[in-house]
Design a protein around this nucleic acid. Structure first.
Lengths: 139, 139
DNA sequence: GCCTGATAGTTGATGATGTCAACTATTGAC
DNA sequence: GTCAATAGTTGACATCATCAACTATCAGGC
């Protein structure tokens, strides 16, 4: 994107800056729930009732498959997650939340997605515009 | 913010989702520059010509001070960063970029803030609106 | 059926990240 | 000057993350 408009560059810079600012919150939030940031990422990816193959987790986190093995080992030993064989392919193991894991995940997502006070600086109209724009951007 | 509008919640959810999506890019980008994600964070915080105390880095990254010691040890051994005593307080050590570190940081920031093609989905008007809204949000 | 190559996950080795407690040096207030 | 507080380091330890080697399974061709 060498020829992106300056508006696009500015917008992207702001989004990246937001991501970095946001990054600092996760360790604190994770610690409150006795989790590590990496474990939060894994937990976030396992939606209740939607088991996900381990390889897909590695792919989404852009990390090595053996790293996921260790992360899941710890989550499983804490009773938050279960490995189950995939029906379609016996090489694949899918990850499912236990009831405890499901509750913890809900708590985690709830705290992560609670908007901070600074969002109140925006008018309702601006909030709507932001939702519309981000939806197009991420969709 | 229990009483935040649903628009605010939606907007925040999208921003958080963006942060997570963004998170996966850093390891790849960092690896290209022979850096780890954590080292990128430190490098990003040291602006050229603006030495920063180590404690401030720890505070911004929301991590222990001893962690910064190790990170800076590795950056310094690679000749990217220098520890210097602070004039005002002899307990404090400030971090400054070497010329090599400064160049690498510029390269890093350049790659991080290059907008992806998906920003092209937005009209110029939407890009302007996004910049305006994010500026108010982060300011 | 039987090779063969590719894929999913695990294991072991190794280095990096991150926390904690204990320590040194310095500061600032009394 | 004494004493609590602060900045940074050190050492011990768990976790994160990668790589290479391995097992088991799959999918294709013959």
């Amino acid at each position: 994107m060498k020829y992106a408009s300056s508006h696009a560059c500015d917008a992207w810079r702001l989004l990246v800056r937001f991501s970095f600012a946001q990054r600092a919150h996760l360790p604190l939030l994770a610690a409150e729930l006795q989790l590590s940031p990496a474990q939060c990422h894994v937990l976030r990816l396992i939606e209740p009732g939607r088991p996900i193959p381990m390889g897909r987790v590695a792919e989404t986190l852009a990390c090595d498959a053996s790293n996921v093995t260790g992360l899941v080992d710890r989550l499983e030993s804490r009773g938050l997650v279960r490995r189950r064989p995939s029906g379609a392919d016996r090489r694949v193991k899918v990850l499912a939340l236990t009831p405890t894991g499901s509750r913890l995940r809900a708590l985690l997502l709830d705290r992560m997605t609670t908007p901070p006070a600074t969002l109140g600086r925006l008018s309702v109209r601006e909030q709507q515009a932001l939702v519309r724009i981000l939806t197009r951007l991420l969709g």
